[in-house]
Design a protein around this nucleic acid. Structure first.
Lengths: 247, 247
DNA sequence: CTTTTTATGTTCCACAGCGTACCGACTGAA
DNA sequence: TTCAGTCGGTACGCTGTGGAACATAAAAAG
């Protein structure tokens, strides 16, 4: 925990492209600053850009006509937004909501598709990531169905923590309740329970992770399962191995 | 409803390949008979074949270490098994369980990957399907979380009915309870409620769809949403349009 | 025809999470 | 300093579903 070196934001997918490719790719990207609460795309809407978070966090949310919402995946600098673009689709079936502010790289959809067509390496990489994403969404489905709120919340905090610099998460109970698909009051209870165990502390709009190991204990095994799948993916991509210890 | 012409089983994906391609593809396929309860693949296991149901039905099930199971998608002759193969993965993260018996086409994984590499048409088709699958899994996740058992069950029956010839589904409450991730007793109650409404009837291991329209009424909108996404996909693939009326 | 197995019917209790509502506390803008 | 707006704490009753059991009925095996 704690970066003392000046922070250099990167996207791990792009990072694992070979030098040449990466340069070519980056040449067609621009850096944008993501704002909190921004909807990158709504279900059914056309996807304008492929987006690679550098130091921001996006929630992928499945919605119901009747208004129900549920986060099914989270994208930080380990991933990307715009997967349907590589599947020949123009539109997203999910909502994408900026949950953590910061910079991201983006590239127009058409341009991204060109790069995909021209670079087998890039395509291979994206495919791996897509495979991971599918696993994650499926996992999310079972997890949500079977695990009690407290464990799900612990998992959510860990996942967010993994994709955030520092130990402070800027989110409200209200927001969390939307992500987890439960009442705000329910989140308050669960949060207090977790706080009483000394795993987190919080005040008005910010949650501070105090005891990561404890949180892993409190969370369902889905957290570890997810992380393992991600690590496997990275290995297969044969990029410089990150240490298996996260943070 | 009711096919009077002698039944010619086809797979709609393969069907929508152009003549030439299709022949080449079929030449490397073999027909196999699927048995009830057969596990095509377990999570983490290597995928040996790509499988294209002709007249059988497969459930894709997400599992938890702790034993929880939840069906996240269903594959009939409108789809295929072995999506990870086109994503550079060897293994499946889902369980695949034969739920409806009948014939299927299959092709070894390696061979399938060759075909993919050589036929852009095939690849485009598979990508579209994958896109649909992702939508379906996400939809499934929200649906399971928000909708009451009875509506989910109605949806499940409709989806199964769509992928089955005739109106008789050969499944037990027990089986259904596994798919929906609920107690068997719960299924019995929901089934009775639906039966009392005159939408289905059943005895020991078989459920008969009596009133499809009524079932759609009783099901959550997720059923229609799903079907729409699938129809959209077919349009994009620009294959001969099936009438929008199902069955 | 009898026995065993399998599928369904039903009941009792427990409880997580829902809907709703209201209150107090903090914060930022005027 | 005040005030409006946001956020968190708490409480009440309700309900869908879980866990667990046991009873009956139909089918399969013998």
């Amino acid at each position: 925990m704690g970066f003392t070196t000046p922070f250099l934001p990167t996207n791990r997918l792009i990072e694992s492209l070979p030098e040449e490719e990466r340069k070519r790719f980056l040449a067609d990207c621009e850096i944008v600053e993501m704002e909190f609460g921004q909807m990158l795309v709504e279900p059914g809407e056309i996807i304008s850009h492929a987006i690679f978070p550098l130091d921001c966090l996006v929630s992928l949310i499945a919605t119901l006509e009747s208004g129900g919402r549920l986060e099914v995946s989270m994208v930080g600098n380990e991933g990307m937004m715009g997967i349907p673009l590589m599947l020949g689709a123009q539109t997203s079936s999910l909502q994408a909501l900026i949950q953590g502010v910061g910079p991201a790289l983006r590239m127009s959809s058409a341009c991204f598709q060109d790069h995909l067509a021209q670079s087998p390496t890039l395509e291979r990489l994206m495919k791996r990531y897509l495979n991971f994403l599918m696993s994650q969404i499926s996992q999310s489905a079972v997890c949500t169905h079977y695990h009690p709120l407290e464990a799900r919340m612990a998992r959510w905090l860990l996942m967010t923590h993994d994709r955030t610099r520092g130990d402070q998460l800027r989110i409200t109970h209200e927001f969390l309740s939307n992500m987890l698909g439960v009442r705000r009051a329910g989140v308050t209870l669960a949060a207090k329970a977790i706080q009483n165990r000394g795993l987190i502390s919080y005040q008005r709009g910010r949650i501070i992770v105090q005891d990561r190991a404890g949180l892993e204990e409190a969370s369902c095994r889905c957290y570890v399962a997810d992380r393992n799948i991600y690590d496997q993916m990275l290995e297969q991509v044969a990029c410089p191995m990150h240490t298996s210890a996260h943070k």
